Simulated assay, not measured.
Amino acid sequence: MKLHQLSTLAAIADTGSIRAAARSLDLSPAAVTKAMRELEADLQAPLLVRGASGVAFTEFGRALVVHARLVLGQLQRAEAEIEAMRGAAAGKLSIGVTPWVALTFLPPTVQRFRQHMPEVQLEFFEGLLGVVQPRLRDGSLDFSIGRPPPASPQSEFHNVPLFSTHSAVCARRDHPKAGCRTLLELEDAEWVLNWDPASRESISDNLFRKRGMKVPHTIHLAHSLSVVLGLLARTDMVSIFPWPLVEVLIAKENLWALPLRETVDETIVSITSRRGAPTSPAATCFLECLREVVDEGSRSQDPELRRLFHSIELLL
């Protein structure tokens, strides 16, 4: 396998076609096709299925794309590290961020980071596991700040806990169940959650079954916080947010945290990276800026920050 072949394969995956990949690489379609045929011949396996509507990847192709992106990403990180050692820090830093961190600690962290590394381009993704895990796996994401993936002895990810916080059930202020005191009163409610489909069973267990409740008939999943907020504002749906996010949104979005007696869903926010992957100078700098912002915030006299830290427990 040659590097230009892996670059070509990744470009086809990113753009969706041979012609688009050729444009992105400034090559002819014939050159892209030749590179793929040579790669297939080297591996003795079909990677692409060519048809009138374009190309699709075989199972061999899908597997190789993951490794191709990992190799290319690691080479980019190596180049960035050498540049940083030469005093010319540049490149790109890709980060997954859970919404409440994005709305609280992220802006001052970015400002501080930009003072240290103004030439580094930042790229952010909403920190849902379904979004960040594949990108961590293929090396296109440096790290994420959010819920850690399920732990296991053979886990491919490394987690460093940052915060622990509980959550609140939220709805619009004039919701028919705004005065509910127990989760049992919400058995017949319609829920919308900004969580991953893979979390559905753990949600059901943690929130409902362990309390002897029936799992609500309807639990919608939304892969965007703005979608959830829009639905809460104009429907009778309810949702669950970590308390720091509630503190940020409750006044701005006309939301109401139901005065439940129960403790709802403890959330751990961690820094998650691919196990064994070296940390780039840019990533190290960004995480140090984040720790400084959090440390200063925990000692701040600002009322809004005090209210935020009242709802979290620092673990770092």
Results as ranks from 00 to 15, higher is better:
L39M: 15
R306E: 15
E201G: 05
E304T: 15
A30M: 11
D295I: 08
L231T: 11
E313H: 14
L122R: 05
L255S: 00
R137S: 12
N206H: 12
N159H: 15
L245V: 06
T98H: 03
R291H: 14
A21M: 06
R172Q: 04
A68C: 02
Q74N: 15
D174H: 00
A63W: 04
A22K: 13
L93S: 04
D236N: 06
I271F: 09
L232P: 05
P244L: 04
L308G: 10
H166P: 02
T235Y: 06
L39W: 02
E38N: 11
L245R: 00
V110W: 14
A168V: 07
T263L: 08
A68T: 06
L47W: 03
L6H: 02
Q44L: 12
H310C: 10
R37M: 15
S17Y: 07
V227E: 13
K210R: 13
T165I: 01
R69S: 04
Q5K: 00
F57G: 02
V97M: 10
L75K: 11
L225M: 04
L9K: 05
P149K: 03
V246I: 09
A13T: 03
Q111V: 04
K34N: 11
E262T: 01
E266K: 14
E247A: 11
Q111K: 11
A282C: 06
A30E: 12
E83L: 11
N206S: 14
T284G: 10
V55S: 06
E292N: 14
L232W: 00
L48K: 01
R135D: 07
P134K: 13
L249K: 03
S152G: 09
D188S: 05
E288L: 14
S311P: 06
V71R: 15
R211D: 00
T165Q: 07
A78H: 13
E253K: 02
A41G: 06
L221Q: 10
C180K: 01
A251I: 03
V238G: 06
F113N: 04
A88T: 11
S202G: 07
A178V: 10
A35S: 15
V294C: 14
I18K: 00
R37W: 12
V227N: 11
L128E: 01
F125D: 11
E185W: 03
G212S: 01
E313M: 08
L25G: 05
E296P: 00
R50T: 13
A222N: 08
S24H: 15
G54K: 04
Q44R: 12
P259L: 06
Q44C: 11
A102F: 00
L245W: 00
A31G: 01
A84P: 07
H4N: 12
A13S: 10
S280V: 08
D142I: 04
Q121V: 05
D14I: 05
L193E: 09
A282W: 10
A90G: 12
I12N: 06
D302W: 08
L315S: 13
F113S: 02
F309V: 09
V264W: 08
L162S: 05
L43H: 13
G16Y: 02
R114F: 09
R50G: 04
G91A: 09
V238D: 07
A198P: 06
V32Q: 07
L207S: 01
I240A: 04
R172C: 05
A222F: 05
Q76R: 15
L103W: 05
S164D: 10
V192T: 05
R112K: 14
S224M: 03
W100N: 09
D302R: 09
A63T: 12
T267C: 03
L128Y: 14
V228S: 10
L193C: 09
S273Q: 14
W256K: 03
